[in-house]
Amino acid sequence: MLTRRTETVNIALEEDIVRVRQSTRKLAVECGFSLVDQTKMVTAASELARNTFVFGRGGTATLQVIQDGGRTGLRLTFEDQGPGIADIEQAMSDGYTSGQGLGLGLGGAKRLVNEFEIRSKVGEGTTVVITRWK
């Protein structure tokens, strides 16, 4: 698999969630995604960037345009060194919330992408990787 392009956005302020959305949109357009697919990817990015900001106490989003054989995709990696998630299965379920919002963040984001991966360790942080192929 080839990485064609990488961009990193620091998530330290609330406004950075908007920057993640804008950078994701730009790369999704570059990948040739349809408008619906762009919107899905940008929305998933927004949910995950907010999780990184609110629950992870800030972190980074790494955006990569990747190529695998003949297909092009957009892969986003959200990393934080926050408190981590003890029960990932529970955190993924709709309606689960750690205090703010409806808890659609993780489960909702997963439904909007082709591949979803989450790793978390209590006390060390959380990494979420999502990929959408054209």
Partner: peptide, 11 residues
């Protein structure tokens, strides 16, 4: 596209 995404998101 926003409506499609919102429903898939679960809202």
């Amino acid at each position: 596209a926003v409506a499609i995404t919102l429903v898939e998101l679960g809202m």
